[in-house]
Amino acid sequence: MNIIETSKLVKRYKNHTAVDRIDLDVREGEVFGLLGPNGAGKSTLIGMLVGTLKVTEGSVRVLGKDISRDSTAIKQDIGYVPQDLAFFEKLSAYDNVIYWGRLYGLEGPELKSAVQEALEFTGLWDRRKDTSENFSGGMKRRLNIACAIVHKPKLLFMDEPTVGVDPQSRNSILESIRKLNHNGTTVIYTSHYMEEVEAICDRVGIMDFGKLIAVGTIDQLVTETVKEEFATIEINNMSLQLAEAIKRIPGVTRCERNQNVLDIQVNPAIMSTIQLLEMLISKRIDIQAINVEKPTLETVFLTLTGKKLRD
């Protein structure tokens, strides 16, 4: 079942189209990564999905309901972790989570137990009485999450929840997301850290210039997007003539020499990296080392957008 369905979704500001005819399905129970360079339209898309931005054209169904008609009911079951630390720094961690719990309609013993659960889940229960302005960056990030999960949402939007935290806190946050997902929460996750997306996301959507240019599992995206193979080969007694000769082999699309090392890109439809190596060995080329690079999400992103994610 799809927990989010958008059809021809458009958001236009005067002459600028921030989101352009997006059809997106997010399945219940998955962690969906949303990637895109700055200004790609990710935040605008999320704004429409959580009901804070009006839709210009198209439709949005969240949790099986139309956002334009049932936004209050939908909001009851979604959580939102913004990129900014959006809570009251002068209040204690406990008071903050109480506040957000009440906004989601929790009261009395149910509220208290939910707050305790959220603070324990994020590892802040022992520091619940401390004013949050005295927290470290990682603790503030965790409090930001606690405020969003106090009501146990079915769908959780997380907009770069690990920005500016140390590796230990990041791991703790990623582990929390896995646990939440394991407990049944569907997560929409945006991040500039490719390794985080690779680590926790089941499927990924890549946005650029307001369009959703690719959606799928990481393996699918790699297979479908990256058509070439990459390898570095270290050769003894490397010469300019040899490098030029390799470059002329059909299927080799790029060959750059750096002293004894060749950076090679081949088109597997014509010749695979293995076939190239076999050919070089049969010609008695003295190969010292080989490194075949596995294409990653970063490669996919670079191929599709022409930019690195942190550009």
């Binding site: 959580v50 913004p82 957000w100 906004l103």
Partner: peptide, 14 residues
């Protein structure tokens, strides 16, 4: 400025 306002609008509070 602290984005609490926009975050509140993602809750059932209108």
């Amino acid at each position: 400025m602290s984005r609490v306002y926009s975050r509140i609008l993602t809750t059932p509070t209108t």
